[in-house]
């Protein structure tokens, strides 16, 4: 559901992220301007050091850019205090990591409930529904150690979805999974976009994952060098190969 008129979930304007100073300075991101409309599944790719993860961190409010501005659903991040930023992460942003997503001493259900509990607004019905969405109803009382990698990531997706966020950021969500589990995860994300109306921005290095997305961005040396909708797997492979070889 959009709460503002122009339907943009995340917008980055002239984003820059510089490490170090003077001659030793490195620009992980340099003048990146990009918009992610609501209801879109975007994949961000690029070789190591391209800045894709840095872009994701800046968009999610986990890292502060050295220049430029990030806006999430109309709210500019730069003006927010750490506390406000944190609250935003509870309500408007969902995050899925490559690994170590879950607290080992909580059950699957308790892990999914976590963002709601932190906000002090537990809604059991919603938790049940979300668990059902990711088909984990029967494993809800198990601890992460008792779940497979794929199941753990499903719990992570449920947790990211449970607060009905404006945008979900995923950092290499299939990186640690075998291909079957990986497919499951990507399907779940796809369904979250198609049926749930969510917005997903996914960083990946795997073309087979990127093909699920509506739109693929390629970064190289901190800049967006390609931004195309509806690419096929072969097109993505070619693009990656071109980038990888100088």
């Amino acid at each position: 559901m959009s709460t503002n008129g122009d339907g943009i979930a995340v917008h980055a304007e002239g984003l820059g992220r510089r490490y170090g100073e003077g001659e030793a300075a490195i620009d992980a991101l340099a003048d990146v301007t990009v918009s992610f409309p609501k209801g879109q599944f975007a994949a961000v790719m690029g070789p190591s050091g391209s800045g894709k993860s840095t872009l994701l961190h800046c968009l999610a409010g986990l890292d502060r850019p050295t220049s430029g501005e990030v806006t999430i659903d109309g709210t500019a991040l730069s003006g927010l205090s750490d506390r406000d930023l944190t609250v935003l992460r509870r309500t408007a942003i969902g995050f899925i990591f490559q690994s170590f997503n879950l607290l080992p001493m909580l059950t699957a259900r308790e892990n999914v409930e976590l963002p709601l509990r932190i906000a002090g607004r537990l809604d059991s019905a919603r938790v049940d529904a979300t668990l059902a969405d990711v088909a984990l109803g029967d494993r809800a009382t198990h601890r992460p150690a008792e779940l497979s990698g794929g199941q753990q990531q499903r719990v992570a997706i449920a947790r990211a979805l449970v607060s009905h966020p404006t945008v979900i950021f995923a950092d290499e969500p299939t990186g640690n999974l075998d291909s079957t589990s990986g497919h499951e995860i990507l399907n779940l994300l796809r369904r979250a976009v198609d049926e749930g109306g969510r917005t997903v921005v996914m960083v990946t290095h795997d073309p087979r994952a990127a093909v699920v997305a509506d739109r693929v961005l390629m970064l190289s040396d901190g800049r967006v060098v390609m931004d195309r909708p509806g690419m096929t797997a072969d097109e993505i492979y070619d693009a990656v190969r071109t980038l990888d070889s100088p």
Binding site: T86, V87, R90, F97, N101, L114, P115
Partner: peptide
């Protein structure tokens, strides 16, 4: 992770 999903300081 907790901070990332919204636990304040």
């Amino acid at each position: 992770m907790l901070r990332a999903i919204g636990l304040t300081r």
